[in-house]
Design a protein around this nucleic acid. Structure first.
Lengths: 200, 200
DNA sequence: TCGGCAGTTGACCGATCGGTCAAGAGAGCC
DNA sequence: GGCTCTCTTGACCGATCGGTCAACTGCCGA
């Protein structure tokens, strides 16, 4: 035809869904096509390979995440940091509501499974993580300038630490069958312990 | 026989190797059999399924880890905590030396990939994580009794936090192509920020 | 009006997947 | 010696995997 316009998007969104409720290995191209109501030939018109689809899904999530994180600027660093924790918790709570349990971080899941398998996907994930971490780092530097960072705390290392903690905490919730509501709480703890006493 | 005796062990060790350099989905039963020099029928004599093999690999790593963590008891809590950080870093450095890069945590990798796919494997991983966390918690409680914990820090939550941080930090090193040598350093940071000033 | 081209379709491919099975082979026990 | 039980073998299975292809369809610009 070809008519359409939204075929590619339907594929990406359907596979984003499937990848969250399963894994890269457990989701076949046929599964994706069925979920998106698209024939396989059409799929391969838009994506040269299954791995390329994964990258598109990564981009989808990365855009959504950065948009959400950029929302709360123009506030104090402490509030922004806690806002990030709430945002992460909110996203995970949304996933939990949709899928019935904590299904992990879209980046972290693919990173754990594919980093050692496909270098191009790993690069894609690495840059998504880097952008995420830079967003954290900007807030941490703001905190340093505001003087609310505990002495000896390096803002860049704190940003890295926050990201690591986020990933690890989500993973533990996923494997342990824990609720998403506690994820934000532990992130708040981590933030507070790095701030001076009395900094909200 | 049936001669042998070490066939099962060879299978488990070979697949532990393959699972670290790849993923559960990227390693086939045929791969495992070839690496262990075992025919497929023999494999299925010892393991009813591929998933059951994964559980055996989990047990292998869990035993090795707990043995390593139990080594440094009878010291101050602060030293023991830092000892745990060094142990984790040492394990990862060993993997890095063997595989040429950081390949992730054996538990974390499988947890991310299989938690949403196979509930029995997820249970297995959850109990491995729980034992690990309990080991951490024991040291954190010791730290509390020694009075070296910063005020407001809950030992159980700290143990959970340490585990989460460990997992996240290893994942970031894996996807970012970072060196394993820095993993221990960030864990030391996290421990120090939770201890009172002056506590070694 | 017509040609080209993005999009679509469904049939098809070889490879590989996890798993099965009947038959054999050797150690240990009687 | 012979029985049994564990282990081993290699051939085999249907299903599914990621990916290809030639043909078709309809919009759009010339």
């Amino acid at each position: 035809m070809g008519r359409s316009g939204d075929t590619r998007e339907r594929i990406v969104r359907a596979s984003a869904r499937l990848l969250l409720s399963g894994s890269y290995g457990s989701v076949s191209v046929d599964d994706v096509c069925a979920a998106a109501d698209v024939r396989k030939g059409s799929f391969y018109h838009f994506f040269p390979s299954k791995a390329e689809l994964a990258k598109a899904v990564i981009d989808l999530h990365a855009d959504a995440l950065l948009e959400r994180l950029a929302a709360a600027s123009g506030d104090t660093a402490a509030k922004r940091l806690h806002g990030v924790a709430d945002a992460v918790g909110g996203i995970q709570a949304g996933f939990e509501a949709t899928y019935g349990r904590v299904v992990g971080c879209p980046f972290g899941n693919l990173a754990a499974e594919l980093s050692t398998v496909d270098d191009t996907v790993r690069d894609h994930l690495a840059s998504a993580f880097a952008r995420w971490e830079h967003g954290f780092a900007a807030i941490c530097h703001q905190a340093e300038h505001e003087g609310v960072l505990r002495e000896g705390v390096d803002p860049d290392r704190l940003a890295h630490s926050l990201l690591a903690h986020t990933q690890g905490r989500i993973l533990l919730a996923k494997v342990g069958g824990l609720s998403a509501t506690d994820i934000a709480a532990t992130l708040h703890d981590l933030i507070d312990v790095h701030l001076r006493e009395g900094a909200a």
